[in-house]
């Protein structure tokens, strides 16, 4: 058991945990903002797959087009990353317009988008992995800077920026206000639609980034990547204390939630716990976290 603990607490393993929660963490920042407005996004897993696939296809398209012209090697990388972000943002615009302008329930809109994006990922890739990506792009997932993997740096940056925006800027305050009392925010002159739309677009950009990072880590875009991520992300956000009703929570909580679940997964894997049992344990932990939050609130009022 002490050997196990040693393995667990080694710096290497902490980085390993950080790396393994990178994608969920990046998605968690956007999901926190969305849930703070009182919304939800069920499509993030599919969005990760679709933006990864489109990024890989874009890299190939630019590469083959440039092969004739003698190209700088950076172009395919920029194209791939840009394509991933664009796809993510497009998904965000779609959801944002439907939710903010047409006042459709976010749950249903993103449920539809979940199916649409997954289908498109398979369509565009013909159901196959798209590999042979430019080395510069793969660096996003596999590179190491000052001994720390690039995805971990990116995740840390996302949490840092996300925290700053939500805690220190007017836009962040308005996100809380819209989730806390939309009518009050509207009457106070806040552009509630714009805030909601902007939040979904920002979330979409993060989905695109997560898709690029995952694809780069795998060295290939796989259309069935990200299956079930939406549940992992929502679990991290909720375990981190953000209220699904909106207006309450923070990205730091989400970071704690993601670390908590990632650590648990990792520890269970290191301890070689039966895979069937692992799922049960993770579910029970989420349940305890949420119930604990409830009881704490009840105790106060």
């Amino acid at each position: 058991m002490s050997a196990l603990a040693g393995a667990f607490f080694s710096l290497g393993n902490l980085l390993n945990v950080a790396l393994s929660i990178a994608v969920i963490g990046i998605l968690g920042v956007g999901m926190t903002a969305v849930i703070l407005t009182g919304g939800i996004d069920l499509s993030v897993g599919s969005g990760v797959a679709l933006s990864g696939v489109v990024a890989a296809l874009a890299a190939h398209a630019v590469d083959s087009g440039a092969a004739t012209g003698g190209s700088p090697s950076l172009l395919p990388v920029v194209a791939a990353l840009g394509a991933a972000l664009a796809v993510g943002a497009a998904g965000g615009v779609f959801t944002g317009v439907a939710v903010a302008r047409l006042r459709a329930p976010a749950f249903l809109v993103t449920l539809a988008l979940l199916s649409i994006e997954r289908g498109l990922a398979f369509l565009f890739s013909s159901g196959q992995a798209v590999s042979d990506l430019p080395a510069g792009f793969n660096w996003l997932g596999q590179g190491i800077v000052f001994g720390v993997p690039v995805p971990v740096w990116l995740t840390a940056a996302c949490f840092g920026v996300g925290w700053f925006v939500l805690a220190r800027t007017t836009w962040g305050r308005w996100i809380y206000a819209v989730g806390g009392n939309e009518a009050a925010a509207w009457l106070a002159g806040i552009d509630t639609r714009g805030v909601t739309l902007g939040t979904y677009v920002a979330n979409g950009l993060l989905v695109g980034l997560a898709g690029a990072v995952l694809t780069a880590r795998l060295g290939a875009a796989v259309p069935n990547a990200g299956l079930g991520y939406e549940l992992d992300v929502i679990a991290a956000v909720v375990v981190g204390g953000t209220a699904l009703t909106g207006g309450r929570g923070s990205v730091l909580g989400t970071l704690a939630g993601a670390v908590c679940i990632g650590t648990l997964d990792n520890a269970l894997n290191l301890a070689n716990v039966d895979p069937y049992l692992q799922r049960v344990v993770v579910g029970v932990v989420i349940l305890l976290a949420v119930l604990g939050e409830r009881l704490r609130h009840r105790g106060r009022t």
Binding site: A7, G12, N13, N16, L19, S20, V23, A129, L214, R217, L218, A220, V222, N224, A225, G226, L227, D265, N266, N269, L270
Partner: peptide
Amino acid sequence: GGGVRDRALKAADDILQG
């Protein structure tokens, strides 16, 4: 690994670490 690449990647990370 769930038979899918990203889950298998994470499982392999943990195995190699442990």
